[in-house]
Nucleic acid binder design. Structure first.
Lengths: 192, 192
DNA sequence: GTTCCCATGTAACCCGTTACATGATTTT
DNA sequence: AAAATCATGTAACGGGTTACATGGGAAC
């Protein structure tokens, strides 16, 4: 027992090693950056730390591969114990917590006293940021082969696409609402 | 100058003190829990820590209020320097970073080898969690008076509502897609 | 009589980020 | 000559969470 439980990132890396065996830490970081960056970012620093932890736990093993064209590297494989730990984690009913923090919304929320133009600029900036992320996600989704194996990856990307699209729609909505000059007058004019 | 910059939570608390003066830390924590929990959670522990920091910075002042019916409390007010710092932060063009982590999506993404029923259960659980959050947000939005002052708060809540609604739609979509048994057969039958 | 509300904190932890470090090879 | 790619890390920091602590009055 000794119910030590590890951060979700540990299982994220473990799952990647399982999915894409014989990859180096460098490779895995790149893969993480493409596949789960949008809902569970794993930086390269964290990647190496988790790989070390997984190795210490005996959940993955590594093998040295010598290269001439590039520096030597270590490639990783999941072990039976690792596979069991991953399966257990996947089947455990855990809180499935979501953390979401938006510095934009915080600013927006506190911006009640700001100039309308400044608020408009904030919204415009937000829209641009959303578009960039949407384009990136769309590229990921497009690149995914239409195979059953990639189905979960495609659906995961779609989750982000749907979310970002809704948020872009919200920007339009907010702009429209803010265009109606405050609630005091029903429909006065002469703005800006 | 001495460009020390503080975490966004510092300004979140500062902004709340500005918005709702003469509130105690306890009150502010409750207010934060209603208003900005959905895009910038501030736990009560963090609240007290930030209030202390703000006091040390001279951005807020506190006054002791004695009570008979309840324990004494300290209430806070923003200072001119605090107001200036807040305005500066609001007008600064900062990264406006968004952090999003979904343990559900991580599981879902790694669940390729899981039993279909288990995946279905995961989705159902996610839907429930989304509904709970949506209901909570809807309640917040409904409670907001339809005044111009509350406009930003309403729009902030709406952002969450739009997001959660899109994610709920995604759950339907994912269920529909997963109901079509893998990509090999076009439209076979006999599932469960 | 236990639980909830008020009210305010302290202590410890640790996950994730940022910055720094190294160095060979290939491309611009 | 500079920048990017491959490859792997170390060190330090700190923001946010969790657990712990206290204690009176009110409500059920």
């Amino acid at each position: 027992m000794t119910r030590a439980d590890y951060p979700a990132s540990t299982y994220a890396v473990l799952g990647l090693v399982d999915k894409v065996p014989d990859s180096s830490g460098y490779d895995l970081a790149a893969i993480a950056d493409r596949s789960l960056q949008h809902f569970w970012p794993v930086s390269h620093t964290l990647m190496y730390r988790e790989l070390k932890r997984l190795t210490d736990l005996g959940w993955v093993t590594s093998h040295r591969v010598e290269q001439v064209v590039a520096p030597d590297k270590s490639i990783y494989q999941i072990t039976p114990e690792g596979r069991r730990a991953l399966r257990e984690w996947l089947h455990a009913e855990a809180p499935m917590g979501t953390t979401y923090r938006s510095a934009f919304l915080l600013r927006f929320f506190l911006a009640h006293a700001m100039h309308p133009e400044r608020i408009a600029a904030l919204l415009a900036q937000y829209r641009t940021a959303l578009r960039v992320r949407l384009d990136a996600l769309q590229a990921v989704a497009d690149q995914l082969k239409d195979t059953p194996r990639a189905r979960m990856a495609r659906l995961s990307a779609l989750h982000g696409i749907r979310t970002l699209t809704a948020q872009l729609d919200w920007v339009d909505e907010a702009e429209a609402e803010l265009a109606t000059q405050d609630g005091s007058g029903p429909a006065s004019a002469a703005s800006d």
